[in-house]
Nucleic acid binder design. Structure first.
Length: 422
RNA sequence: GGAGAGAUGUCAGAGCGGUUUAAUGAGGCGGUCUUGAAAACCGUUGAGGGUAACACCUCCGGGGGUUCGAAUCCCUCUCUCUCCGCCA
């Protein structure tokens, strides 16, 4: 959520930013500004009347203490009439505040200056590429065929027990999941991130805090008896740890990492690109979250980018980094880098990580602040995947297939307890 | 699932209709003293709105009500704790 005062002081900049993000309801901006002006006016009026009533009420108390009941009764009547004037103002104020809030919630975050102009994924900007694309024989198999050949993943069984998009991992396939999770967490904690194991369900306030509500509730699984939501990412419980908290400046940066399964309904995405592990409803992911001083968030974003890049390099996967264009970015982000790995048998780039700076957009909603020199201000929040497992597994299987089996990268040997899958 | 108790500032904890602008203690910060530290003493220390700065207004778990006046009384919701039951 953007801050009203910022919008008021930077109207032109806000309009331009929204345009870059291809946000259509531009009129909201002026609406917000006038609603806030009205809010202030009403609030002032209400405060003044309330102040009078408070004074009179105190006087009544003093009169009664002195036994001057008749004067007190007269004052009571006076206050009663003042109260009648209070009601309509307070009702109007409530209406205005509600509309203001509703409008503010609809505004997306503004894109950073470095965000490229564009609307579609094709217009994302290539930052750099790394690693070597393998040369596979003509009869190379896609990961869903490899998964079957080595009995690693059973998609049909998932259909039976739960539904489409809930695969079973089995044997070496299950162990590979465990090895990757363990390795990713170790990699992150060595870089100073504190490991958490959070709840996999959150309440409504938390889903609202990170921006899943009120808009995207169709994307989350909902446990209606208790009104809990299955988390779509560890970002939700992790960031909400600090909801409504005021940190000390020296507590920053807060660096957190967690493994969780992620649950996504993916409503509306059928057909292409959903085969095998390319898009599933439940998957494993290790996530990074940082809360930082607002002056340092872009520096930290680059640091997180390098961190994830090193991780991909250690897996020997060919990757590329994209800077997302205005139209392809998420509602809440100010700048997002996507990591994609090349899945050689499908001959396709698959997104495996998204690293974003949200600036104060999330923290304004959640009221995550810090205190410095007596002043309280919002921290900046960032997050990134390191990494989402399914597509990493897809690329590992496809790119490393050979006549001797799947040859795993060196770094995984000890975690996996072997160097290949046969 | 049943019964009971409770939710107050950073923490502990009083207040249960009108000098509460929320007592008191601890912690934090500043100071006096000291070579330095501890102790002792003095001062200071919540959030939001509003203002050029004051003033002023709101907040004692959330929402609603009674009253001239509510942390205090009533209703309701949420959560926490204790005991019993069930249980990995």
């Amino acid at each position: 959520m953007l801050q009203v005062n910022f919008i008021k002081a930077n109207r032109e900049e806000v309009l331009e930013g929204l345009k870059k993000k291809h946000f259509s309801e531009i009129s909201l901006v002026d609406n917000i500004i006038s609603l806030d002006d009205e809010r202030k006016k009403l609030q002032f009026e209400l405060d003044e009347r309330q102040s009078k009533i408070n004074t009179f009420s105190k006087e009544i108390g003093q009169l009664m203490a002195k036994g001057e009941n008749r004067l007190a009764e007269e004052k009571k009547l006076e206050v009663a009439s003042l109260k009648g004037l209070l009601q309509p103002v307070s009702e109007q104020l409530n209406i205005v505040e509600k509309s203001l809030q509703d409008d503010l919630i609809k505004l997306p975050n503004l894109p950073h200056a470095s965000v490229p102009v564009g609307k579609t994924p094709e217009e994302n900007e290539l930052v750099r590429e790394g690693g070597q694309k393998p040369v596979l024989p003509k009869d190379a198999l896609a990961h869903w065929d490899l998964a079957k050949k080595y009995d690693l993943i059973n998609f049909e069984l998932g259909n039976k027990v739960t539904g489409a998009g809930f695969p079973f991992y089995k044997g070496k396939g299950a162990k590979l999941q465990r090895a990757l999770i363990q390795y990713f967490l170790d990699f992150n904690t060595e870089a100073g991130y504190t490991e958490y194991e959070p709840p996999f369900m959150v309440n409504e306030a938390s889903a609202y805090g990170t921006g899943q509500l009120p808009d995207k509730e169709g994307q989350m699984y909902h446990a209606s008896a208790d009104n809990f939501f299955l988390i779509p990412t560890a970002e939700v419980p992790l960031t909400n740890i600090y909801r409504d908290e005021i940190l000390k400046e020296e507590e920053l940066p807060v660096k957190m990492t967690a493994y969780t399964p992620c649950f996504r309904r993916e409503a509306g995405s059928y057909g292409k690109d959903v085969r095998g592990l390319n898009r599933v409803h439940q998957f494993d992911k290790v996530e990074l979250v940082q809360l930082v001083h607002p002056g340092k968030s872009y520096e930290v974003l680059e640091e997180m980018l390098l961190h994830v890049e090193k991780l991909l390099q250690s897996l020997n996967l060919p990757y590329r980094i994209l800077r997302l264009c205005g139209g392809d970015m998420s509602f809440t982000s100010a700048l997002t880098y996507d990591f994609e790995v090349y899945s050689a048998a499908q001959q396709k780039w698959l997104e495996v990580s998204s690293v974003s700076n949200f600036e104060s957009f999330q923290t304004n909603r959640m009221k995550i602040r810090f205190k410095a020199d007596g002043k309280t201000q919002l921290v900046h929040s960032l997050n990134g995947s390191s990494l989402a497992l399914p597509r990493i597994v897809a690329a590992l299987l496809e790119n490393n297939q050979s006549e001797h089996g799947i040859l795993l990268p060196q770094i995984l040997h000890s975690y996996f307890g072997g160097d290949k899958i046969q």
